[in-house]
């Protein structure tokens, strides 16, 4: 008999025990370890993939951010350019205005200077003219001329308008009969007497006459009371002429300004 049934039973039991033992000590732990390793590798790969994804995401984000920054920069650049352009134009306009203002001012100043110069010139010219005239008349003037002037003066005194003579008389009385006569040259005693006689003839006797000389008259004579003056002299003429001349200049300036 090749088969011993007890041995068969025993071997079945043995085999089943071995199955249990190997399951406990071999397959279980080994399979578990392999699964654990696989899981670990898988998790590591997953983690790596996740990291890579994150990195890619971050890269994309950064790229996006960089692009937006670049856009922003471009925008700002354009804006700044525009602002600079505006500023430049503004500055140009301002500068133009300033230049225009300066020019205006300058023109005004030039005009004013010109006017001042012209005015000065006119004044100087007139002064020169009168200075020359005065000198010429002074040099020309002598006693003879004075005599003649005196006669003209006395003639005029005699032909004085009644109301003027009246006014002169009144002011003489106010001054207490005092009368000042000034001439350009010292008068001779005969001339003085002549004048005294003439005046006393006109205004009545008892007048106190006081004779003096004044170079300003150039040639001529002046009768002064306290409030009145009767004069006939070249200086007087020149003064009148000067006044007329400056009046004429002013009239010209006014017409120019208009």
């Amino acid at each position: 008999m090749l088969i011993n049934w007890f041995v068969v039973a025993a071997q079945i039991v043995n085999f089943l025990i071995l199955v249990l033992l190997l399951k406990r000590f071999l397959y279980g732990p080994i399979v578990q370890a392999m699964a654990a390793r696989e899981e670990r590798i898988a998790s590591q790969l997953e983690a790596a993939r996740q990291k890579k994804e994150d990195a890619e995401q971050e890269e994309a984000d950064l790229r996006q951010k960089m692009r937006s920054l670049e856009d922003q920069r471009q925008e700002m650049l354009v804006q700044a350019e525009g602002e600079a352009q505006a500023h430049k134009e503004n500055l140009f306009a301002q500068a133009r205005e300033e230049v225009a203002a300066v020019r205006q001012k300058w023109a005004e100043s030039v005009k004013w200077q010109k006017e001042a110069f012209l005015a000065n010139l006119k004044q100087r010219l007139a002064q020169e003219i009168f200075a020359i005239s005065r000198r010429v008349l002074q040099e020309l003037g002598d006693l003879e001329v004075e005599e003649r002037l005196l006669q003209v003066f006395l003639e005029r005194l005699r032909q004085l308008a009644p109301e003027e003579r009246q006014a002169l008389q009144e002011s003489l009385q106010e001054a207490g009969g005092e009368l000042a006569i000034s001439t350009a040259f010292p008068l001779t005693p005969e001339t003085r007497e002549k004048i005294t006689a003439q005046v006393q003839d006109l205004f009545g006797p008892g007048l106190a006459l006081r004779f003096s000389t004044s170079s300003e008259l150039l040639a001529g004579i002046e009768i002064l009371t306290s409030s009145r003056k009767i004069a006939w002299s070249l200086g007087n003429y020149l003064d009148t002429l000067e006044e007329d001349l400056s009046q004429a200049f002013e009239d010209i300036d006014k017409s120019e300004a208009a």
Binding site: N14, I17, L18, L22, F25, L26, P29, A36
Partner: peptide
């Protein structure tokens, strides 16, 4: 008999080796 004895021997050997090896398994 010898069959059972040798079977036990093989079982013991397998179990011992398995136990010794799987006692300290590494998952690293």
């Amino acid at each position: 008999n010898a069959t059972i004895l040798y079977t036990w021997l093989v079982m013991a050997l397998l179990t011992l080796i398995s136990w010794l090896v799987t006692r300290k398994l590494s998952t690293g």
